[in-house]
Nucleic acid binder design. Sequence first.
DNA 1: TAGGCCATCTGGTCCT
DNA 2: AGGACCAGATGGCCTA
Length: 194
Amino acid sequence: MKSKGKAGKPSRRTWSDAEPEPEQDTEPEPASSEQEGSEASVRIGGSWRGSLRGGDGKRKRGGSRRRRQHGSGAKERSVRRLESNERERQRMHKLNNAFQALREAIPHVNTDKKLSKIETLTLAKNYIKALTTIVVDMSGGCLPAGDGGGGGGGVPSEASTAKLLQCYQKHLEEEGEDDLTQYLTHARSFSQRS
DNA sequence: TAGGCCATCTGGTCCT
DNA sequence: AGGACCAGATGGCCTA
């Protein structure tokens, strides 16, 4: 009963409400926009750090490290920041909604406890693998049987998965089906008949 | 209390 | 130019 979530975190600080100071300039941060001129804007332990992503190999996509100069005024910068924060929040909410949908799509045992994100992803991966195995098994009539992939309780090999896809595509061409569900229905009935 | 998980902020980079 | 994406940092909540 982890009642986490925003409701449980009244004190979570949002930039907007927690920025009491009208003095926007106050980003205590190092020199706000200009610090970038030099790359030494990383301060571990503080709440800011700057460029230097390229330094450790991560996110080292080309481009200059100079910060883009948006509007110059502190106020304008602050407004942009707030807007950015809001968009980022919305984006994360959408991401979380997607996680929730995924949680609901995969079966799991303990329904009391909400799956964490990492658990959700892991279970989803396993679930997909399991379903793939089932599909491979069911399509014995279509796929050459016993190629080592499907059965055996293991994960289908890449080869069998590729064959499955191939078979599916062929099926689409021949039958004009446009939905995996329909394919599965066919596969199921075929497997039941035989 | 430590550790896990999460929301949010933030600034760099990429894409349209 | 502006929005989207991404990853690091921070701090709060919760459980063992």
